[in-house]
């Protein structure tokens, strides 16, 4: 957003190799990236480019085999233990034996919030994702879009300042997806969180992000970082403006360059 003076996530030469039966696989190689407070950063690229792996590395769900990665000025794993992240996966991952409120309450219980505090937070985040009144329902009684909104609410409930989202809307249909994209932008403006967002969709990345990180596979690496020129206020119709189309074109070119050999 502003001058980018306040780095939250700093990656320097991050390597990650998985040993497999056919020899080591370079999931990430020499990844350099700085994400500042309040940024909305999208990661886009073909399958196997390491975008999900990089997001998981930030959340300390994977451990880099080389390079350095700090979050809030500390190693990623310490940041995880300090509960710095809210993570949203492609599937809602709600616990079927708990109600929507119970699901949102779960991380709060684990982190030791008081009962009154939990109730207050649950009400607030349910309101934020437009699910007020559905707290008593069970996940399997809701539609896919509502379930995914509930899982976002769960990630927001404990006020981590970093929100990591791994293709959260990938399994939803286009219409629901548009509505949730709009709602997510609104949410980001309200809460001023730092968001890392993995997607397959060029329009989604352009519509949401302040910066778009283009990645390419074998080995997984960053090939291009595109700063968005779109204004902070983004109605859905912005997708028909020449500016939006030019940005989309730039992302597509970036993807093609990274892929020139096949």
């Amino acid at each position: 957003m502003s001058s980018g003076a306040d780095p939250v996530i700093t990656a320097r030469g991050v390597d990650l190799t998985f040993p497999t039966a056919d020899g080591p696989v370079h999931a990430l190689k020499g990844v350099d990236l700085t994400i500042n407070r309040g940024d909305f950063v999208s990661f886009i690229g073909p399958s196997g480019c390491g975008k999900t792996t990089f997001l998981r590395t930030i959340a300390a769900l994977e451990t880099p085999t080389g390079g350095s990665l700090t979050v809030n000025g500390m190693p990623a794993d310490e940041a995880r233990k300090a509960r710095a992240y809210g993570y949203v996966f492609q599937a809602p991952g709600l616990y079927p034996w708990r109600t929507i409120s119970g699901n949102i309450s779960l991380p709060l219980e684990i982190m030791g919030f008081s009962k009154a505090d939990r109730a207050e937070r649950i009400a607030r985040v349910l309101d934020l994702v437009d699910l007020a009144g559905f707290g008593g329902k069970f996940p399997w009684q809701l539609s896919g879009g509502m379930q995914q909104r509930a899982s976002i609410a769960r990630a927001l409930a404990f006020d981590a300042d970093i929100l990591l989202m791994d293709e959260p809307f990938g399994a939803l249909d286009e219409i629901v997806r548009d509505r949730l994209n709009e709602a997510l932008l609104e949410l980001w403006r309200k809460t001023q969180k730092t968001i890392g967002f993995v997607t397959h969709s060029i329009p989604e990345a352009v519509y949401l992000s302040t910066r778009i990180v283009v990645m390419s596979p074998r080995p997984g690496r960053i090939t291009k970082v595109i700063e968005s020129t779109l204004p902070a206020e983004r109605p859905l119709e912005i997708r028909d403006t020449p500016e939006f189309i030019a940005l989309s074109h730039e992302v597509r070119e970036g993807l093609r360059e990274g892929h020139s050999y096949d």
């Binding site: 992240y85 599937a91 991952g93 982190m111």
Partner: peptide, 27 residues
């Protein structure tokens, strides 16, 4: 794996994941 990853992002301890996730899932 997804449910276990979620527990990891909340840095839940062994007993917390046992009682809040794995025992109900085992029922």
């Amino acid at each position: 794996a997804l449910q276990r990853d979620l527990m990891a992002t909340w840095s839940a301890g062994y007993w917390q994941s046992l009682f809040k996730m794995r025992l109900p899932a085992a029922m």
